[in-house]
Nucleic acid binder design. Structure first.
Lengths: 196, 196
DNA sequence: AGAGTAACCGAACGATCGGTCGGGACAAGG
DNA sequence: CCTTGTCCCGACCGATCGTTCGGTTACTCT
């Protein structure tokens, strides 16, 4: 079979090591020397698998962005009442954040110093904008409280969800992804829903 | 008088320039060359005013931390029902974040690569913990919904508030600090308060 | 006028940066 | 046995890093 695995590095396995170091030290604060120590191979060997430091960043943020944009293509995000599609997207965002935690973490921290980073920021803005449209639609259908501006509410909700990357850790007997998603939905919509 | 101002740099005026660049490029992504270009003086001249790059970081995060811890010393944060003290702290946090925006922004982005950064992270944890105690007290007094764990709720609320540094800009005719504070309180407590 | 000092500069320091180069070890296929 | 290709290495490259140093303005005080 062609998929017999090796015990050597592939671009993917090397990426998982690199992303972990990037998240600990920051992308700019990580040198190729740091990566080689963490991976257990020499600095020059890294270039056998990937073109360079920036390609590692590009692969990482691409993976995160693919996960997020994938949500918007799912059936429950495209059909139904806006407020229910929004709740589905919020719940799935938490799931994707926790499932692809290191990659999304890196994505949320890029500053825009290189072309790759600026491209990532642009795609992020695209995603944010599409979710904002969903909230706008829910507001138009009268399903969310009218006393908080849609644009402002979107940013605050994104802030709450994205903050997961600052403290959520999948291992250990901490809290499960399902429990976190439920709490986020409770908090977000307990404040967003029009009072009955 | 002794306070006659000069048109040359002081450690404080230089700091304001440096913090702005740090926030645009990231601390690790900013070189002394970048700072000298932004300040309009030579690289070596910077060392006439401050000891080095890390002192600029230390001054900046200290200012942010002083602002935050100052909140907890205020009268409304120390006396009264826990849920009301909490609401006051949340409102004041938004005010401090907007007033000291660049400094708090920098504080919230340190990764822990140097002693200064690790010290900043430790003091941040202190502050977070004290606010968490406030929420815990409000829960004990029965003023917040019991179906979301206190520790989890604290982190999510902090995430929402701290996300201000990602998009709030004081200039222009955007939205005022008062309006933002009100929206945050509405969203946070509209979800936190026990339903009537 | 002269002394003192704050503010600034260009040039250079050793260290480290991301990346290149030529080659060695080793397994597979003939 | 010999080739081929994968995987890896130490040594090195020019560039840039944060920082230092010797020296030059320009203003203040006496």
């Amino acid at each position: 079979m062609t998929t017999v695995k090796r015990d050597t590095y592939t671009p993917e396995t090397l990426l998982s090591v690199a992303v972990q170091v990037f998240n600990e030290r920051g992308y700019d604060g990580t040198s190729m020397e740091h990566l080689s120590k963490a991976a257990g191979i020499s600095k020059s060997s890294i270039y056998h698998h990937v073109a360079g430091k920036e390609e590692l960043l590009r692969r990482a943020v691409s993976r995160a962005l693919d996960g997020l944009f994938g949500i918007l293509d799912e059936e429950h995000a495209r059909e139904g009442r806006a407020v229910e599609r929004l709740e589905y997207v919020v719940r799935r965002m938490v799931e994707v954040l926790t499932a692809e935690l290191p990659y999304v973490t890196l994505l949320l921290r890029v500053r825009g110093n290189t072309d790759t980073e600026r491209w990532a920021l642009e795609r992020r803005r695209d995603f944010d904008h599409q979710v904002a449209e969903l909230l706008k639609a829910a507001a138009a259908e009268g399903d969310v409280r009218p006393d908080v501006e849609v644009r402002l509410a979107t940013r605050l909700v994104f802030g709450m969800i994205n903050s997961l990357v600052e403290w959520y850790r999948p291992d250990g007997r901490g809290m499960g992804e399902r429990e976190v998603a439920e709490a986020v939905v409770q908090l977000v919509f307990g404040g967003l829903r029009k009072e009955l």
